[in-house]
Computed example of a mutant assay.
Amino acid sequence: MILDDFLQRCTINPKKVVYPEGEDERLIQAASYCSQNHIAYPILIGQRKSIEKKANSLHINLSGVEIVEISDVDYTEELFEIINADKQRIDKEESIQLSKNPLYIGALLVKKNLADMCIGGAISDTADIIKAALHVIGLKNNIKLLSSFFLMELQSPEFGQNGVLFFADCGVNPQPNSEQLADIAIATADNFSSLMNVKPKVAMLSFSTLGSAKHKVLDKVIEAVNIVKQKRADIIIDGEFQADAALVESVAQRKAPGSSIKGDANVLIFPDLNAGNIAYKLVERLAKAQAIGPVMQGLKKPMHDLSRGCKYMDIVYLTAISSFQA
């Protein structure tokens, strides 16, 4: 499994990860697993007594796990200055409140290079993760859009790259326009290339295949394909595609015989968040796929969101993926 390969590769150069929701049992388990298996150096933010009590009840070894209590640190002034660096966004009272918010503390530890990455969302809303990430860490230069992808590992190697597909955007942007859809495609293709060491083949999905239907909602998908081709001629991309034409060679031969995607797409870009979120959850549950993410892309340093239904090994796997972005 590619995810097990990621875990093994992490042990060569473990990174420091901060888990702001440190009192959640899944985060405690993940931190212990990462420490005991030399995958990462974990930091849990939370009340020490609560964390240790839960660890003891679950017979979890916290050796090598650092615990940060919010009461022991005061980042009020730093948060005020960082968040207001470009323009006034918060006042002193708000900075005091944010200095007690573990998501902002976790993001700040990454900003200050006291941690390489931050992973939350097990009990927090995606919107809260995004706000903390954008306010404290910020977007990379020349990047206008924060987006996300899911790494989907299927039980069968029949589809994608030996069973691995990247789905985007399934976690952040509800209604991307054509420019934003193109940015999502480019960012996801680049992440696929760096993580998988394989050439990405990007399919822009919809309910039509290369003009088989006509509707105004298809226009942004078609335009996004053209934008990517103009910006990044090195990326193999085509669409609009129905999902079967993107993934099944025999269907592709009938529906899109002249396309550069011959039923072997490994990156699937969905037209909106409705489609992407529904698709990944269906594949995860019905096909019993491993779904890791949403992996945020576009930030200066890694900060990622978890599904609130995640298992502790999902956290471990996301930590491993994030290690290669740090």
Rank of each mutant, 00 (worst) to 15 (best):
D4W: 04
I12C: 00
N13D: 14
K16V: 14
V17A: 11
V18K: 02
E21K: 05
E21V: 11
L27W: 00
I28Y: 09
S32L: 11
Y41A: 04
Q47C: 03
Q47D: 14
I51H: 07
A55P: 04
N56W: 00
N56Y: 07
L58T: 03
G64R: 09
E66A: 13
I67K: 06
E69H: 07
I70S: 02
S71L: 10
S71I: 07
D72A: 15
E77W: 00
E77P: 00
I82V: 15
R89A: 00
I90H: 05
D91H: 10
D91N: 15
I96R: 13
K100L: 13
K100S: 11
V110H: 08
K111A: 08
K112S: 14
L114K: 15
M117E: 08
G121N: 07
D128K: 13
I130Y: 05
L134M: 15
K140I: 10
N141D: 15
K144E: 15
E153Y: 06
F159H: 10
L165H: 03
F166H: 06
L181N: 10
L181Y: 02
A185L: 05
A189E: 09
N191Q: 14
N191D: 14
N197W: 00
P200L: 02
V202R: 01
S206Y: 04
S208M: 07
D219R: 12
K220P: 04
V221L: 08
I222D: 08
I227P: 01
R232C: 01
I237K: 04
I237A: 06
G239T: 06
A245M: 09
A246P: 05
E249I: 10
S250R: 14
Q253P: 00
R254Q: 15
A256M: 09
P257S: 10
K262M: 13
G263K: 03
G263W: 01
N266R: 10
N266S: 09
V267G: 01
P271C: 12
P271R: 01
D272I: 03
D272T: 04
L273D: 08
N274A: 13
Y280N: 03
L282T: 13
V283N: 03
V283L: 11
G293I: 11
G298L: 12
Y312I: 06
M313P: 00
I315F: 02
Y317P: 00
A320T: 06
A320F: 01
Q325C: 07
